[in-house]
């Protein structure tokens, strides 16, 4: 059966949609069942667990940024509620003096 989402790494706290997922869809992900909070397209992320503001977003087993607002399980995770934590090398060097 065609999966709605893919869990890319066991440590991930987000899953990636394999197709358009519709609001209210019940999706099972390994250990939990989540309900999609809104309709999102292929390639977008849904929270696997409730995530507080400040939580690291984990995909491929690594941090891809931090939540700027809380999201419930099944909520859409994107630029409206998370941010990059990347500081480019030249700015890091500048900060070091």
């Amino acid at each position: 059966m065609a999966p709605a989402v893919i869990l890319l790494h066991p440590d991930d706290n987000v899953v990636v949609c394999c197709r358009t997922v519709h609001a209210g869809e019940l999706i099972s992900v390994a250990d939990v069942e989540i309900t999609a909070a809104e309709t999102v397209a292929l390639g977008h992320k849904l929270a696997r667990y409730p995530l507080p503001a400040g939580a690291k977003v984990i995909k491929y087993g690594a941090s891809i940024g931090s939540m700027t607002a809380p999201v419930s399980a099944g909520g859409w995770v994107h630029m409206h509620n998370m941010k990059s934590d990347y500081i480019s090398a030249h700015l890091r060097d500048a900060a070091k003096g």
């Binding site: 990636v16 949609c17 999102v40 397209a41 292929l42 390639g43 977008h44 992320k45 977003v57 995909k59 491929y60 690594a62 941090s63 891809i64 940024g65 995770v77 994107h78 630029m79 998370m82 941010k83 990059s84 934590d85 990347y86």
Partner: peptide, 13 residues
Amino acid sequence: AEGGLSSQEEKSA
């Protein structure tokens, strides 16, 4: 971003 990527490090990952 339209494709669902939210950060530089996510794209790179």
